[in-house]
């Protein structure tokens, strides 16, 4: 078949327009579902740091009835509006994007898990985490008891850690190691929680600022250690305020 250059150009343009149009329609049409899926996923991750989620859990319902969220800055002050004056929604803030800003400009969301009976009492403060694992980014949420020192639970996820090694940070067994560990020492200084090198399998060998490591995944473990320390530092001012009995108003 002999075809002229004009035919080829017209064919290519028509093909591009048709395919591009179809993809745009698909992208626009699926957008609401995708936003919902991401929202559900975020809320699932936040909740999974304080409670055991089963497939039957009504994530959105539980989240809306039990959780309050606020946004603070590095000084621990409440921020209500973004630069353009639009009200901020803590759940919509991209932790990844914020982590690339200067600490002074960062928007720091705090999720407050409220008491089931007394809705004015906080059961846990949940802080987001974001950092680098061995191969790619890792992130999560750490839930801290009202004393703001003892870890209530942690949820972690990763993009590309080695399956069976670093990827074990998503395992319940590894996450449970963080429960009851302490972020601050008795004098209130931030120490963080260190995941040790090697895996010894006996929880009693580790102090209140240490957890057992993951065999073969020391570098992922280091990433987790840095991530926790870094993010709790960002929230230091807020934590100090709450510890001093100040209230940072709820939305």
């Amino acid at each position: 078949m002999q075809q002229s250059n004009l035919y080829i150009i017209i064919f290519s343009v028509a093909l591009t327009v048709v395919l591009g149009g179809l993809l745009s329609i698909a992208a626009v049409g699926l957008k609401p579902m995708q936003t919902k899926a991401i929202e559900l996923d975020t809320k699932k991750q936040i909740l999974s740091s304080v409670m055991e989620l089963t497939p039957e859990t009504d994530v959105i319902g539980t989240y809306n009835s039990r959780t309050n969220s606020i946004v603070v800055n590095l000084e621990g002050e409440l921020i209500e509006n973004d630069k353009d004056g639009n009200p901020l929604i803590a759940e919509k803030i991209s932790i990844e994007k914020e982590s690339k800003k200067d600490p002074e400009d960062m928007l720091l969301p705090v999720f407050l898990y409220m008491n089931e009976k007394d809705a004015s009492k906080v059961d846990a403060y949940i802080f987001p985490l974001f950092g680098n694992g061995l191969w790619d980014k890792i992130w999560g949420y750490i839930a801290v008891s009202p004393d703001l020192t003892t870890v209530k639970g942690i949820a972690m996820d990763h993009k590309g850690e080695t399956p069976g090694l670093g990827a074990r940070i998503t395992d319940k067994e590894v996450k449970d190691r963080y429960k009851t560990k302490k972020l601050f020492d008795a004098n209130g200084n931030l120490v963080g929680i260190e995941m040790k090198k090697g895996e010894r399998g006996d929880p009693s060998l580790f102090g209140e600022h240490e957890v057992d490591g993951m065999s073969g995944a020391t570098l992922t473990g280091n990433g987790v250690n840095d991530m926790i320390l870094k993010y709790i530092q960002f929230y230091q001012a807020y934590i100090d305020k709450i510890k001093a009995g100040e209230t940072v108003a709820l939305n």
Binding site: L22, A26, A27, L30, M33, Q34, A37, I38, D41
Partner: peptide, 16 residues
């Protein structure tokens, strides 16, 4: 185009 379509659908309905 087909692959992007699959990807978009997965993101909407099978996010996990």
């Amino acid at each position: 185009s087909l692959v992007i379509l699959v990807d978009q659908v997965l993101r909407a309905y099978l996010y996990d």
